[in-house]
């Protein structure tokens, strides 16, 4: 691979990390002011805030890669140009994070599947020889450790709570399980510029088993897994998320905010 190609892979990888954290932040933020109880409203908003912070770090790095490359644009890339002016087909987030909040069960389960994956990912990434990515991963790991603990506790509470909460968790598993395969299946750019998540698939699954056991929830059998988000083929939800997210920048181009 030429240097040029490696930079392109690195860029795709950074954008993938940035998009994934941004979209989940956007989804979680929908709860702000509407949570089931004040303490949890604060908790989910806090996670949203952590994730947008991580997204900013990854976008800033991606912008740096673009601005240093041979075919740099006339207007330098920024964290905002990358988040606000790319289209549905350019976004590289995993499908899981763009799925709707629905109820607290689905939001919690999405967070648990994701944080479980992100925790393993950042542990690997902090050893990366790309020092910038390693530094972001290392810095974020403390936050992610908390997200994982918080969401695991809620999976257990809801799974082993009332008949209704248990039923809602089963429904959430039914909705979301099909999007978990993609988290652990590497896109080309992940293999070449980052960490291959299939390497930690066993640890991911064993954490799910441990938490689901305690929550008295069944781990689904092998089913067909949806994928495509990492390479820009999304579910129909993403277009609406971006419409809202990008509205001001699209309506008032070339303005400072």
């Amino acid at each position: 691979m030429t240097d040029q190609e490696l930079i392109k892979r690195k860029l795709d990888y950074s954008l993938h990390l940035a998009d994934t954290t941004l979209i989940l932040s956007q989804r979680n933020a929908e709860w702000c002011g509407h949570g089931p109880v004040l303490e949890q409203d604060i908790a989910i908003t806090n996670i949203s805030l952590d994730l947008v912070g991580q997204a900013r770090n990854f976008y800033q790095y991606a912008a740096e890669l673009i601005n240093q490359s041979n075919d740099k644009p006339i207007h330098p890339a920024t964290e905002d140009s990358l988040a606000y002016l790319r289209t549905e087909r350019e976004f590289k987030n995993c499908l899981l994070v763009e799925q709707p909040n629905e109820d607290w069960a689905q939001t919690i389960l999405r967070q648990f599947f994701f944080s479980n994956y992100q925790f393993l990912l950042y542990q690997e990434l902090q050893k990366s020889n790309d020092r910038q990515l390693a530094a972001i991963a290392e810095k974020s790991l403390k936050e992610v450790t908390y997200h994982l603990r918080w969401s695991s506790e809620w999976v257990i509470r809801l799974g082993d709570g009332t008949a209704e909460s248990h039923q809602r968790m089963l429904q959430a598993i039914d909705e979301l399980w099909r999007y978990t395969g993609e988290l652990l299946n590497a896109a080309e750019y992940e293999k070449e510029a980052g960490t291959d998540p299939s390497l930690f698939q066993p640890q991911w699954l064993s954490k799910v088993k441990e938490v689901f056991d305690e929550a008295t929830l069944p781990v689904p059998e092998k089913t067909f897994m949806q994928s495509g988000g990492k390479t820009g083929t999304h579910t129909e939800h993403l277009g609406f998320i971006l419409t809202e997210l990008q509205y001001i920048q699209r309506a008032y181009p070339d303005s400072q905010w």
Binding site: L22, Q26, A29, E30, C32, G33, L38, D41, I42, T45, N46, S48, L49, V52, G53, A55, R56, Y59, E79, D80, A83, Y84, E244, L245, Y247, I248, Q249, Y252, S255, W257
Partner: peptide, 20 residues
């Protein structure tokens, strides 16, 4: 959800969280 920049989004999230 519509904040015009990532920085503004983060500041607003933190502000609304402070209110909670």
């Amino acid at each position: 959800s519509r904040a015009p920049s990532l920085k503004r989004k983060a500041i607003l999230l933190a502000k609304v969280q402070d209110e909670a």
